[in-house]
């Protein structure tokens, strides 16, 4: 049974220029012990969606649809109840640990606070849990680190502290929003390795938000590709890389410099994403799509199963065209 079920989620921000539909009818689900990757570029709505799930958006944002954690509906839940869930049942790791850690409090103070907010334990017990938590994410001499301030730690260490803090209360759902983007490749590899280990040990559902297809390939079981507020393709990670179905996914894969060394020029997706203030009527990728047809400009394609497992795609192209192009792309790259 799915731990997190999102159905027809719409997140709209009120702005001076009118409403902006950052998330426009997204449905997805994650099981316990699974990692769902959400891939897309800036402005595709991936962060707005994760903040909607956590209930962390300002009042000016309107969240409609359904978000269920287990069998509890989160949309419309009062602030107090959401606060009790956050940090206990569900936790989030952000891209930049420096903006999420309090710079004037020690690491220990912050970890102990996080434990005592949700568990009725003594200070000494909370401290013991904090030390355990730091040790579990591979921080050397965790007892001494409790006395450190965030500034005294390196970027990778801070991210480990964030992960330790998120896991302190054994959440059932963990959302990681670009957890390695601000880090060096070597540190990124350490954090990815850590998340792989945690995945085996903690039986939580993980939603990993990233723009990096490399990170997706390393860590995820399932992937949803988002474009301009909508899911355009959903598949298992193997399926996505072996038989990508959506022209936007093809573009993303083809523009990776490391996968396409032989090609004379790097593939580029022309133009830039549409404004969500006045989104196009049909398929939102139509203006940048090399395979665009007349129907694409008028009718938004629904997310339709491809018939292979859980895979689904939102594209008007015929299945055999998509299969051929997708296979050509992944075949070319491996050659």
């Amino acid at each position: 049974m799915a731990l997190l079920t999102v159905e027809n989620l719409r997140t709209t921000f009120r702005t001076d220029d009118g409403p902006v539909g950052a998330v426009d009818g997204v449905s997805l689900s994650v099981d316990a012990g699974q990692v769902l990757g959400i891939v897309g570029e800036s402005g595709c709505g991936k962060s707005a969606m994760s903040l909607s799930i956590m209930g962390l958006l300002p009042k000016s944002a309107m969240v409609e649809g359904s978000i269920r954690l287990g069998d509890r509906e989160l949309v419309g839940l009062p602030g107090g109840e959401l606060r009790r869930l956050r940090g206990a049942e569900m936790a989030m790791i952000f891209q930049d640990p420096m903006t999420s850690l309090n710079p004037v409090m020690t690491i220990g103070w912050q970890l102990v606070e996080a434990v005592r907010l949700h568990q009725k334990v003594s200070k000494a017990e909370a401290r013991r849990l904090a030390i355990e938590g730091l040790a579990a994410v591979g921080i050397p001499s965790p007892e001494d680190r409790l006395r450190s301030y965030p500034l005294e730690l390196s970027g990778g260490m801070r991210q480990r502290v964030m992960i330790a803090m998120a896991l302190l209360n054994r959440p059932r759902l963990l959302i990681a929003d670009e957890p390695t983007t601000a880090l060096d490749v070597t540190t990124q590899a350490q954090i990815l390795e850590l998340m792989r280990e945690l995945r085996r040990e903690v039986d939580a559902a993980i939603v990993l938000i990233t723009h990096d297809l490399g990170v997706v390939a390393e860590l995820c079981d399932e992937v949803a590709v988002m474009y301009a507020g909508r899911v355009v393709e959903r598949a298992t990670v193997d399926e996505l890389f072996a038989r990508p179905q959506h022209p936007y996914t093809w573009g993303l894969l083809a523009s990776l410099p490391g996968r396409n060394l032989a090609s004379e020029r790097l593939h580029q997706i022309p133009g830039s994403p549409p404004s969500l203030l006045r989104p196009p009527a049909g398929c939102r990728f139509a203006a940048r799509c090399p395979f665009v047809m007349d129907v694409c400009r008028d009718d938004p394609p629904p997310l339709t199963p491809t018939g292979r497992g859980t895979a689904a795609v939102a594209c008007h192209l015929a299945q055999d065209v998509r299969d051929r192009e997708g296979a050509r792309l992944s075949g070319e790259e491996r050659a």
Binding site: M157, A189, A217, L256, G258
Partner: peptide, 25 residues
């Protein structure tokens, strides 16, 4: 080690790859 740390955009290779993760900072 720096080259080995790059994430590989290929799930099949990513799983089979022998990884040397550089420790520390």
């Amino acid at each position: 080690a720096l080259l080995a740390a790059r994430p590989v955009a290929d799930p099949v290779r990513a799983r089979s790859q022998q990884r040397i993760v550089l420790e520390g900072d």
